[in-house]
Design a protein around this nucleic acid. Structure first.
Lengths: 192, 192
DNA sequence: CCAATTGTGTATCGACCGGTATGAAACTAA
DNA sequence: TTAGTTTCATACCGGTCGATACACAATTGG
């Protein structure tokens, strides 16, 4: 079985470029011309290597989860409920206000890709979000230090709501320092 | 001064239809064909009555603020800080989980319209958001019942962050009842 | 060398985008 | 009626969208 002509680009590197374009411009706002320009490869190479635009987005989303968004899964390993929430909130702030990447959160942005042809991209992001929150709820359900009067699912929902809000605020231009003050107030009152 | 042919549609009613399309599909996702179909008028009538797509969006945004989003300005008239926050949060939940309108918040959706030609739409939404939060901060600055240790600007930022998060959660499919439980936990801990 | 296979570059596809030219239709003022 | 003005409906503009057809280049197995 012959090997054929070798690929002239690195798949993962190209995927990282695509991720950044999707992150900054959204699924609908990222045209194939933008993607090819950023990835440094031609249009047919994208289709040969990744399928179509939808599949490229899904692969970029996976890379986002296991790369810049990996802190969310790692935060669950923190020893206390308070520390889990703290790491999630602070991680969200750092993720969405980086200077070496687009502001905001790809996952939150993608929820608002409301065009008719962006449905599959939105569904993929929604599935990721749902999985993340379920894992967080499980973490709280098993926690012996969950404060009295706190429901695991409700707390997970509130933490997720706050991190979502942080992403919107970051996308709207709020600075990292401002968000830290907001987060400190939230943490101070929610889990004193 | 002659009168010319009278308009065959109601401007405000057509604007309401356009608002719903923008609300559901976003600025970029709403094509002129979608808009003409929903508004029941032809393309040139839109341009004659509203200008271009950008101006139509801005007018729809103003109608959103003074219509479905009017609760936000009215909430500032509540007598106590606690009640202002309560009305803002509960109003956000009701706004973003209506059954007779698209889920989510047009203002939050528009922040994530990241395409290059949606810049003016995003800027218009950002200006509205900024104005709203400034008014909220002023309300807290003048409040004699602002709890000790609470900074007016930080509290306004946190409330705004939470309402933003609510909009994202609603857009992601969370139900009104779930959001109410989340909001109750937030209010209970933030302003006991 | 010769197939067989796979990637690359160009050029293009039909569909749709936002926006408009054009002329008929419907009104007011005289 | 007639002139003037405004709106309506059709049909179309150049440009861009996502996706592909096609021919050529580069590699492996024989």
């Amino acid at each position: 079985m012959p090997g054929g002509r070798p690929r002239a680009f690195d798949t993962d590197a190209a995927l990282d470029r695509a991720l950044e374009v999707f992150w900054r411009q959204g699924y609908e706002g990222a045209s194939l011309s933008d993607l090819t320009a950023a990835m440094g490869i031609n249009r047919p190479s994208i289709y040969a290597a990744f399928g179509n635009k939808e599949e490229l987005f899904v692969k970029a989303l996976e890379r986002y989860v296991s790369g810049p968004g990996a802190f969310a899964a790692e935060a669950l390993d923190a020893p206390t409920v308070r520390e889990v929430v703290e790491r999630l909130v602070h991680g969200a702030i750092e993720l969405t206000t980086r200077t070496d990447a687009p502001v905001g959160c790809l996952m939150v942005n993608s929820v608002h890709a409301c065009g008719p042809d962006a449905a599959s991209a939105r569904d993929a992001a929604l599935a990721c979000r749902m999985a993340g929150e379920t894992a967080l709820r499980r973490r709280f359900e098993d926690a012996p230090d969950l404060p009295d009067g706190y429901d695991a699912g409700t707390l997970a929902g509130l933490v997720h709501t706050i991190t979502d809000g942080i992403a919107v605020q970051a996308a709207g231009g709020r600075t990292r320092d401002e968000l830290r003050r907001v987060a400190d107030l939230a943490l101070r009152t929610l889990l004193p």
